[in-house]
Design a protein around this nucleic acid. Structure first.
Lengths: 228, 228
DNA sequence: TTTATATTTCGATTATAGTCGAAGTATAGA
DNA sequence: TCTATACTTCGACTATAATCGAAATATAAA
C-alpha cells in the first residue's frame, strides 16, 4: 500500500513493443482503425484488440465506432507530448548483427509504411512532387494541383478511382526515423502500387524494405528527377 | 525489424512498480544507497540489485561506489523531467475496498517515509519548526538555528550525537502525494525515534502509517503548536 | 438473403520478468 | 585477524502478460 501516484500503471502501457508501435503510429494525429494498427505493429487482430482496449482503459487513446470499424486516436495533447518525449530520448532499434545492420540500412533507404512509400525514397519523392508543383502541402493533407492532376493521369494513376475509395485521399504521414513527412493515403498507395506494377521497385523478402530496380532508377530520374 | 526509436525500451523500465518506486524516491535529487532503495520499495536487496542494474544499464540512473556502499542518483534532468511528467498524469494508488480507502486516509494523515515522518503531520511539523525559527530552509537542506539548537536539546534530542552519524544531517525530502517537502536525514530520524520513545505516536500494523496518541496530541500542541 | 469484412471474446499456450533463498565478494570496523 | 555489513551472483520458482486459433458478433456489400 503506497501513497505516491502510480507511475508504473501508465508506463507499463507504453512499455510493450506492440503497444508502443501503435502509439507511435498514432502520433500523426489521425484516426486509425484497429486493423491498420494491427498490421503496423505486426500482430493479429485479436492481439491488437487486446492491446487497444488496455490503451483505451488507460485513457491514452480514444475510440469512435463507425459501422463495423473502430477509429482510434491519441486521447489528448498530454499523451502526444509524453510519447514525443520518449521518442526523443529512446534509442534507435537495437542492432545485434551484421545482417540486422544491413536491414536497417535498407529500411532507411526505402520501405513501405502501412501501404505507401517511406524512408529516404518516400521523403525524396514527396519533396520532388512538391517542388514540381504536383502537390501542395496544407496543414495535414496534400492538395493535388491542376498540374498534378495532369501529371498523375499521364503517369497512369486514376485519380477519380482513388477518390472514390472511402479513405483519406492524400495526407501527411510522419516518419519518426527520418523526422520528416511523406505522402500517405489513397494517392500514396496508388503510387506505391503503380511502382510495383511497373517493376520500378521490388519487395525485399521478410522485411518491409523495397529495392529500386534498374528500370526504377531510370523511371524515378525521368519522371521525378530523382537520382538513386 | 522496425525502424522507429524503441519507445518500449525506456518505458518498460518505468513500467514496473518496484523500479518506479525507486525512481520516484530518487526524485529528491539526492543520492540513495541500494539498501535504502530496497527498503523504500519493499523488496529484498537481491531484487533491488537486479532492478538497479537494469536502470543503470538503461541510463536512467548513475551509480558511484564508495567503500561498500553504492550511491545511486537520477542520471540527468531529462530523466527527472520524464518522471515528473508521469507523476503529474499518473493516477493515485488504486483503491479497491473500504479497507484500502481507510488505509490511504491514514497514510495521508501521518506515515513514515524511509526513516522519518511524512504525510500531513510531517509537513505540518516541518512548517511549525520553520515558523518558530528552529530551522531555516536553504536550498535542499535545513539549517538548525541557535534557537533551534536550544529547542532540540531541551526537547531531548542529542544533536552532537546525530551529527556524528555518517549520513545527511538534515535535508529536504519531497513528498509526491502532498506535493510539499518535509524534514529528512538524521535529525528527521532523531525526531521520529523520540516521538516513538515518548509514545506520542504508535505504528499502525502492516502499513507505514502512524497514529498520534492522546499524549501525542497534547505534546504536539504544547511543543509545536499543532492541533490534531 | 447470403457472403464478406471488421472486430471481439474465449481458451490455451508460451515466454519471461520479478522474486527470493543461498552463497559469494568486498569493505569497514573492532 | 575476525566479524559485521553492503551488495552481487546464481539458481529455482511463480505469476502473469502477450500471443494466437477458433468461434462469436456486428455491419457492409452483393
Amino acid at each position: 500500500m503506497s501513497i505516491n501516484p502510480n507511475v508504473a500503471v501508465v508506463a507499463s502501457l507504453l512499455g510493450e513493443t506492440s503497444r508502443s508501435t501503435m502509439l507511435t503510429s498514432l502520433m500523426d494525429g489521425r484516426f486509425h482503425t484497429a486493423s491498420e494498427l494491427a498490421f503496423m505493429s505486426e500482430i493479429t487482430p485479436q492481439t491488437a484488440s487486446f492491446h487497444l482496449s488496455k490503451l483505451v482503459e488507460g485513457n491514452l487513446i480514444n475510440v469512435e465506432k463507425h459501422g463495423r470499424h473502430r477509429y482510434y486516436q491519441l486521447a489528448n495533447k498530454e499523451v502526444a507530448h509524453l510519447i514525443e518525449t520518449f521518442l526523443s530520448i529512446s534509442p534507435p532499434p537495437e542492432v545485434r548483427s551484421l545482417k540486422q545492420s544491413n536491414q536497417v540500412k535498407l529500411l532507411q533507404e526505402a520501405r513501405t509504411c502501412y501501404d505507401h512509400l517511406a524512408g529516404k525514397l518516400g521523403v525524396t519523392l514527396t519533396d520532388s512532387m512538391l517542388n514540381s508543383n504536383y502537390l501542395e502541402k496544407e496543414d495535414r493533407v496534400f492538395i493535388v494541383t491542376p498540374k498534378g492532376e495532369q501529371f498523375f493521369t499521364d503517369f497512369g494513376i486514376d485519380l477519380t478511382e482513388l477518390k472514390k475509395k472511402r479513405r483519406s485521399f492524400s495526407h501527411v504521414c510522419l516518419d519518426w526515423s527520418e523526422r520528416h513527412y511523406h505522402l500517405g493515403g489513397a494517392l500514396g498507395n496508388g503510387l506505391l502500387t503503380h511502382f510495383f506494377e511497373m517493376n520500378w521497385i521490388v519487395h525485399i523478402p521478410s522485411i518491409r524494405a523495397v529495392k529500386v530496380t534498374d528500370s526504377g532508377k531510370e523511371g524515378f530520374k525521368q519522371f521525378f528527377n530523382i537520382n538513386i
